[in-house]
Nucleic acid binder design. Structure first.
Lengths: 133, 133
DNA sequence: CTTTATTTCGCAACACTGTTGCAAATATAG
DNA sequence: CTATATTTGCAACAGTGTTGCGAAATAAAG
């Protein structure tokens, strides 16, 4: 009988776990294409997109929209279980292209009355502390 | 002799001016597709992209990357000629899908040493003051 | 264990945003 | 007017992300 899944594409139904582990172990925010590069061809593009969606929905990771419009993902560190909006700054380095969560930097701002907040996306682009200025 | 440009597509070489006017007269940030919708088929997709690029480069408008990763554009109001980075908050309403510049709200934050700032992108999504909460 | 239901997955196909190369059209300078 | 520079349209492409569907894997029920 023909095996549809060959050696190159072992199906294990654990994409979500693998993706989560990868994001947790990364110092910087990770994009879909980063994950694709690491998992190679063991998983399908769409499967990874769906795993990321599920993880975001479950509040395990959060999505960062980079300056170039591409989503990056980072594990939720400082956020508790409640997973309110992420009130910290993301730094996008123009030199090394890495996006890091500056968990300790809490921006403060005062919204005019009548506005309610669901989600914040604070991204600063510049040169990070690891790159030569 | 064959006219390549028919009545439906009058070439006027003023796309940049038209686009700038449209953005200036808008209360909210405007996307490429918004402009396409208004200019209809009088201009080419690419022409509008290039006009926007030029306007951004000239410091006439600034680019806002929305939560969904799509670029929106707004006229530079508070920024002077020098056009440093835009230190104000953009509010993206989940109800009316409009993006407004909250020019008066200046977020404050303290970066760790070793970081230098080129550009900031502060977008808050939620419900704006015109929509029912 | 066997059957059923749920979840995850791969594939194909698509939509949308944005970019690039090139040639034609327009505007500007001399 | 002629030469040069800018703007434009078209085609083609790349990248990101989504959807439908049927198959496979896992979990749950009997």
């Amino acid at each position: 009988m023909l095996q549809k899944n060959n050696m190159n594409k072992p199906r294990k139904n654990n994409t979500k776990a693998v993706v989560e582990k990868m994001i947790r172990e990364s110092e910087v925010a990770v994009s879909h294409s980063d994950i694709m590069a690491e998992l190679g061809k063991t998983r399908n593009r769409v499967t990874i997109y769906r795993a990321l969606d599920r993880l975001v929905e479950e509040g395990v990771i959060h999505r960062i929209v980079n300056i170039d419009g591409v989503s990056k993902f980072a594990a939720c560190q400082t956020c508790g279980d409640k997973h309110h909006y992420h009130n910290h700054i993301h730094f996008s380095c123009t030199e090394c292209n890495e996006v890091t969560c500056l968990d300790d930097v809490e921006p403060s701002f005062n919204l005019p009355s009548g506005y309610s907040v669901n989600e914040v996306n604070f991204t600063i682009s510049g040169v990070c502390n690891k790159c030569p200025q």
